[in-house]
Amino acid sequence: MPITFTLNGEAARLDVAPDVPLLWVLRDVLGLTGTRFGCGAGLCGACTVHLDGAAIRACLTPIASVEGRSVTTIEGLAREGLHPLQRAWIAEDVSQCGYCQPGQIMAATALLATTPQPSDAEIAAALAGNLCRCGTYLRIRRAVRRAAAGEV
C-alpha cells in the first residue's frame, strides 16, 4: 500500500516496503542526498531530519511511521534562499569537510524552534548526538548563538 506524507511542504506518495528506513527512501529513492548516512544506528546524527518539526534520526525511522506526517530535510529547510541558521553557519565559517553539517543544522533548527534563546548547556545537550569528526563544535555553538541573536 502506498505511503503518503508531506515532504518539504509538498505531498509525497510512494510505493515502498513499510520497513525501509526513511534515510534510504530520501537518499536512494528520492535523490535527497543532503540527509547523510553515518552509522545506521542513531549514534551520529548525520541523518537528522524533522518529523512534524522535531529532530529525528532518519536511519531509525521506518517509512511507514511517517504516514500522514510532515518530513523536512535540509533541502526543504528554507522555503526560499537560506534559513537564518544556514546563513549563520556560513557567517561563522563552520564547515570543514561538511558531511555532518546538514544534520547539525537540522538539530539546531529544531532546538531554536522550542528554545529560541538557548544557553551553551542547552546547545550542547541538544546537539550531543550529532558527531563532527572535523571538530567544528566551537563554531557550531557560535553559529547557533548568532542565529538566536538574529545577527544573520
Binding site: 533541502e75 537560506l82 544556514q86 563552520v94 553539517q101 546538514p102
Partner: peptide
C-alpha cells in the same frame, strides 16, 4: 570564508 561553505549547508 570557505568557497565550499554554501554547498555544505544546503545539502547540495
Amino acid at each position: 570564508p570557505r568557497v565550499d561553505a554554501p554547498a555544505k549547508v544546503d545539502g547540495s
